[in-house]
């Protein structure tokens, strides 16, 4: 059976100034049509690289060392330029972090939406698309240049452009990180309702675990270039199986009773220059034992949950 998105053991290296940095260290992920997936991880965990890899958009300095990304069974890295273009045009949509930066400053917004529609609509179809993302006064927006829009408006336009082609997968890379907190919810609402209407699968890359868990059906936690835990949002948040997820949950403000202390995660996230020998989280893990820093943890699947941890079975056994 082919999955909508299947990422197998993906290894990506960045070469910079004679140094190699491993951004993805065997990431694996499978997504079915219609899912809303939140990919959570801190800066450097590889989530943005993963997002770029799906569209074959890795920069020139990046090299896919191993593994494959398959969209509807098509290996993205093996497609010819023509088919890759078709895949991007027909199946993928991206929303980026910086709303103003995702619009061309030299072109009116309406023209840009029209270009994003290419082959699927004309000038007359621009306004409905702007209307769909709940922009007030779409005609004025269409006539504007990007610098005349607020961040929230620009991000709505970017969403309209990403959704214009009716993509199968919408990859949103921290789409609200640059926005004011009151606009965030509105923008997220627009993304999720549009995607629900058109049956688009969402991959939302974020570092905000509770926010992701609130809207997504599934949460995927990344650490050190690997997917360390994946499962239904409510379960992952309520009963994290991977020590890193557990630490993330403990470090979230707002979930705690008054007087309770937030628990920071000690140490720094790793910068890999090759495959990590053991579990990348071992140096910071409170429960680590010898095997953790010696062997790469295997994938353990228990009850709809995938966990990449030597201790996973124990924690299951202990009923934690």
């Amino acid at each position: 059976m082919t999955h909508l998105l299947q990422i197998d053991d993906l290894v990506v290296d960045y070469a910079s100034g004679g140094r190699t940095v491993r951004a993805l260290d065997g990431a694996a992920l499978t997504v079915e049509a219609g899912e809303t997936v939140g990919i959570v991880g801190e800066s450097g965990s590889g989530k943005s690289t993963l997002g770029s890899a799906i569209g074959g958009l890795l920069p020139g300095a990046a090299k896919v060392v191993n593994g494959a990304v398959r969209v509807d069974g098509d290996d993205v890295n093996a497609l010819g330029p023509k088919r890759l273009r078709a895949l991007r045009r027909e199946r993928l949509g991206y929303v980026f972090q910086e709303p103003i930066g995702s619009l061309d400053p030299t072109m009116r917004v309406g023209k840009q939406v029209e270009l994003a529609l290419r082959g699927r609509g004309t000038k007359a179809d621009v306004l409905p698309h702007l209307d769909r993302v709940r922009l007030k006064d779409p005609e004025r927006v269409a006539r504007s240049y990007p610098h005349q829009l607020s961040g929230g408006m620009a991000q709505r336009v970017a969403i309209a452009m990403a959704m214009a082609g009716g993509p199968e997968i919408l990859i949103a890379d921290e789409p609200t990180a640059a926005l004011d907190s009151q606009i965030r919810e509105e923008v997220l609402g627009v993304i999720f309702s549009l995607a629900a209407e058109s049956g688009t699968t969402i991959l939302w890359l974020s570092h905000d675990l509770p926010a992701v868990a609130k809207r997504c059906s599934r949460v995927v936690v990344m650490y050190g270039g690997r997917v360390v835990e994946s499962g239904s949002a409510s379960e992952v948040l309520a009963a994290p199986r991977h020590p890193y997820t557990a630490a993330l949950v403990r470090a979230v403000p707002g979930e705690l009773a008054e007087g309770e202390r937030l628990v920071p995660i000690p140490g720094q996230p790793p910068v890999l220059d090759g495959p990590s020998r053991g579990c990348a989280f071992a140096p910071r893990c409170p429960d680590a034992h010898e095997a953790c820093s010696a062997d790469r943890p295997p994938l353990v699947s228990v009850a709809e949950r995938d966990v990449l941890c030597h201790l996973a079975e124990e924690t299951v056994g202990a009923g934690r």
Partner: peptide, 12 residues
């Protein structure tokens, strides 16, 4: 810039 990436995504 992201708008160039966006254009690439939209199949330009």
């Amino acid at each position: 810039r992201d708008y160039v990436t966006s254009a690439v995504i939209s199949g330009a």
